[in-house]
Design a protein around this nucleic acid. Structure first.
Lengths: 162, 162
DNA sequence: CTAGGACCTCAACTATGGTTGAGGTCAACC
DNA sequence: GGTTGACCTCAACCATAGTTGAGGTCCTAG
């Protein structure tokens, strides 16, 4: 379908072409509650133009490393029943901005530690700051909880010590 | 098993406790070729002490956002048949450091764009730098290829235009 | 009025990074 | 020498983020 000049609505193919995401991805986002559409009598999706902004926002947030679930929660916090305003988007993006800043700080910290710590081989030492994580980025499960030395002669923890 | 004082080798439980990763994860890493072990007569794994360094390195690299596959490639590029030296680790970590710096640069760029671009609502404009991606972080498939305006009155591309 | 492209649903499949459980063996302590 | 905890394999399962394909319908242009 080409864009409907009268109603200003878009078919899914239009949205895919104009947003750069695959039709299957739009279906997927809709299943996940990130997008919504109305249907024609023939059961085909019609989108309001604001869907393009939503899709842009989703892709952008993903780049920043935010999961679809979190994105969905943020989007669903938008005022219901009306097209989000610039102010709505700005509020959300400020939140993303802060998250982003945190991630940058975490990575920067990690980078500095990497130079000072692994670079010198102390990856093997229990005192290593990197390996006793502040866990800036530890988003994969409980993750690393404890790291000890593996050099002979250094103090060894008792077997039952955590 | 507690650590073997005579041979200096470690059982999988020791490695798990001391590295902070689950036994199942060590199995998994071994299946993926990231770790290796010898076996006792009773088919139980025995690890050299250097495995702790490898595990630390793997977890660290993951934090930096490197996939297990890439980590495996880097590890397999280590000189064969000998325990990696501090210099080997340093070479690898320098590579990670550079990757990390790139990611930081990308995120920083994104953060600045976020303030200047979404913050002002121009997410909807085709000229938006963010939405015509340099794709610093676009690691999810072909990803966004094209983003256009969705405001009435602006130029609209022909239907067959990409 | 018919051909063909666009669209529909649903199920299955991909890859990553693991975890969980069943069923069985090993080994160390009493 | 038996009990118990640590270990083994293998298969199945979880979540995330989608993609692919089968089988069928819609709709628009010629």
């Amino acid at each position: 379908m080409a864009e409907d000049g009268r109603t200003g609505t878009l078919g899914i193919g239009d949205v895919a072409r104009r947003s750069g995401v695959a039709v299957s991805t739009l279906h997927f986002y809709e299943r996940k509650g990130l997008l919504s559409s109305t249907r024609t009598g023939g059961n085909q999706r019609r989108y309001e133009r604001d869907v393009l902004r939503r899709v842009s926002f989703i892709r952008l947030a993903q780049k920043v490393g935010i999961s679809l679930q979190e994105i969905g929660e943020a989007l669903s916090a938008l005022p219901e029943g009306r097209t989000p305003t610039v102010a709505d988007w700005a509020r959300l993006s400020r939140q993303w901005h802060d998250d982003l800043q945190e991630r940058i700080d975490g990575l920067t910290h990690l980078r500095d530690d990497l130079l000072g710590c692994i670079g010198c081989g102390c990856l093997s030492l229990r005192s290593c700051a990197l390996l006793n994580p502040g866990d800036e980025l530890g988003r994969h499960g409980p993750g690393a909880r404890r790291w000890v030395e593996d050099e002979p002669g250094a103090r060894r923890p008792a077997a039952d010590e955590r």
